[in-house]
Structure formats: C-alpha cells, structure tokens
Design a protein around this nucleic acid. Structure first.
Lengths: 191, 191
DNA sequence: AATCGCCTTGGACACTTGCCCAACTAAAGG
DNA sequence: CCTTTAGTTGGGCAAGTGTCCAAGGCGATT
C-alpha cells in the first residue's frame, strides 16, 4: 500500500493531539502526554513531526476541516430555514464542553500567536462562509455574505457560551435565528 | 482607609495578569513573567495571592465585570436598533487580536477547567443577558430572553472570527443584525 | 530604644518542559 | 549472507515551572 510503516504512528499521534488539545488546552499539551495517550515513546514525536507545534497545528486543521465539510454538506441539502434548525440540532451534539468544541476554540485562540495556523484557519473559515453565502443566495436571502458571517459567528458564539448557559436550548433559539432568514412567501425580493 | 501598604502591589499584579493572559494565553502565564511585568519580585505573587490560578481568576473576572457593566450601561441608554449599531461600533475597538478580547476568550476556555471561574463567569454572563433581555422587552422586542442570548453569542462569535476575517465590517453586518430586532411601527410600548 | 506587624527579598525545592541523539531493531533488496 | 533504510528506544540536557520559606527591612506603636 501507499502507507510506509510509520504512517500508523503518525495517525495515532494526530488522534492523541486532537483529544489532548480539547482536554488540556493548546499550550498545555506536552510531548510526554501525547506519547502516553498514543501509547508510544516520547522520542517518536520529534521523529514524525518537526516540532510539537507542527503536530498540534496539523491535528487541529484536519479536525476543523472535517467538521466544516460535514456541516456545509449537511446544510446544503436543505432550505435555509431547515438548515438553521439542523445546525442548532447539530450543535446540541457539541455542548461546548466536549473535546471537539474546545479544540475549535483553542485553535482560534492559538491562531493569534501562530501565523501558519492563522492562515490555515482563515482559509477554512472563508471557505465555509462562501459555501454558506451561496446557499443562502440560492434561496434569495438578501445580503448573503453578511448573513453567512453572522450565522457562522453566532454558531461559534453559542458554542462558547453553552457551558455557561445550559438553558440555551434549540427550541428557544430557533425562532430568533429564523428572523435572520426572512421568508419569501411572495417569491419576490423586497429591499 | 481600607488600603494597607501592599494594596498597590496587588493591583499591579492584577494589571500585569490582565495583560499577560491576553498576550500569552491563560496557561502560559508564569509567576516570573508576572513579576517582571509588574516590576517586582516573584516571591510577592504568592504572598498576595493564594496561588497563581487565584490571581488569574481574580484578574479575569474583574476585567470581564468591568466590560459587562460598561457595555450594558452604554446600551441601556438607547433603543435596540441604535444599541446594535453602538455595539458593533464598540466591537471595532476590540478587533479580536487585542489583549482584552483575548482575555475574554481565554477566560471562557479556562472556565471549562476551573469550577470557580466557571461559576463566576456564568454569573456575569447571566447578568448581562438579563439586563439585555429587559432592555429589549421594554421596546417590545418579542422573545427578549432568546434574542438577548443570540445577541450575546453573536458579539462574542464575531470577536472570535474577527482576526481571521478582517473584512467583517460594521457597515455590512448592521443590516443583518437589525433583522433580529423587528420594528414596531404600530404598538409602541411604554412603561 | 525596643518591639511589633506587614511587606519584601532571593534563593531553594522538586518537577516538567521541548528537543536532541547515540544506540538499537527490523524489514527489504542485493 | 550483508547492507541499506526506516523506524524506535531511553536517556540526557538546559531552561522553565509553581510553591515555599528563612532572612531581612521598615513604618508605626509602645
């Protein structure tokens, strides 16, 4: 196959990094902890990756990329109204205090201190925004770019607030978010 | 008064912590760095605070409390529509990569690993949400609690996305956010 | 002058950190 | 068989970490 012997070890390290970034926070992930979680020797980290930070970066970007693709694909199959509902439903699987949500937020923060990560994340985020905007545009939502920006920010903001505000439920939020997607009953655009 | 001799040192440490949390990230703030920034000796940190974490916690909560009070007071003097505009304007002073914005986000993240901080932040956030909700209610905005939740989340989400999306400008976002505040041309409610 | 508190100092303690590297193993190709 | 190459090991290094503490300073009260 196209996988040399050590490829499996790389993957295990990336998986361990994904977990630990969420659990401990970006700058508290150590080579030793990584090695223990992946059940291998500390020395291997620097054999397979040029630095600890390179490993964290690669793991974070891969995770974010996977999430973005999933969310965008899921959303594009519906109408904006249903899409918002679906997004909130999806969000309930990520209550904000789970490793994946936290990896997201940690990555945003770390991007402020790491130019490479910042560029990678910016690209992914821009991609997601553009897909969302086109999807909104298709349904005649006015100002699709700005709406996409607000939607994306709101989703991440809810993720941020979630652990501090357990009462924020999909049922109560959906009607408010729907205001962002004005209905086009008459099939006409009004400005 | 209530200020013994070392009170000034306490304040300098809190100020240094506020800066460094934003610059280096919560878990990368060290006693030595703190002491250097505040221009005093490392030993003093543990004389005036029970632990490094207690210092960070106190500094973060004080900063967030000040911001919340400021923002809420500023907002309550206007109508919701103007308030949204004012909030976006205010947000431009915190582009997301400045120490204060970052302290906010770092605090949210750290709250996931520290029960005391979580409780303090939750209280402040709930307070802000409630003030916002009452303010919206006064102007007859429907579902004021949920609307306040969405507004708060969106503001923080924008702060999170800002450094990765420099084109997000107040001008383009305001019309979209205004959709959250439906106009009440008819039944103006007064107390 | 002597005493009392608070405040401050600088160093010590026991760890942990990222990164490196000489030695070793294991499989593949000749 | 031997050699080459990729992968793996465990220990070592210098620099950093939070926390503690004996020793001293210093202003106010006795």
């Amino acid at each position: 196959m196209s996988s040399p012997r050590g490829e499996q070890v790389r993957q295990r390290l990336l998986a361990a990094a994904t977990e630990l970034i969420g659990e401990r926070g970006w700058s508290a992930v150590s080579t030793r902890a990584l090695a223990e979680r992946a059940e291998l020797t500390p020395g291997l980290v620097h054999y397979h990756f040029s630095s600890l930070n390179a490993l964290l970066e690669e793991a974070a970007l891969a995770t974010v990329r996977a999430m973005v693709d999933r969310a965008a694909a899921l959303m594009e199959q519906t109408t904006p109204r249903q899409g918002v509902e679906a997004m909130l439903l999806e969000l309930e699987g990520y209550p904000g205090d789970d490793p994946t949500s936290r990896l997201f937020l940690e990555a945003y923060l770390a991007a402020g201190r790491d130019a490479g990560l910042r560029e990678g994340l910016a690209r992914l985020l821009a991609d997601f925004r553009e897909r969302t905007a086109r999807w909104l545009e298709r349904s005649g939502v006015p100002e699709p770019e700005a709406t996409a920006r607000v939607l994306a920010a709101t989703v991440d903001g809810l993720m941020l607030h979630r652990p501090l505000d357990p009462e924020a439920t999909r049922r109560s939020l959906a009607p408010v978010l729907d205001r962002l997607i004005p209905e086009q009953d008459r099939g006409e655009e009004r400005r």
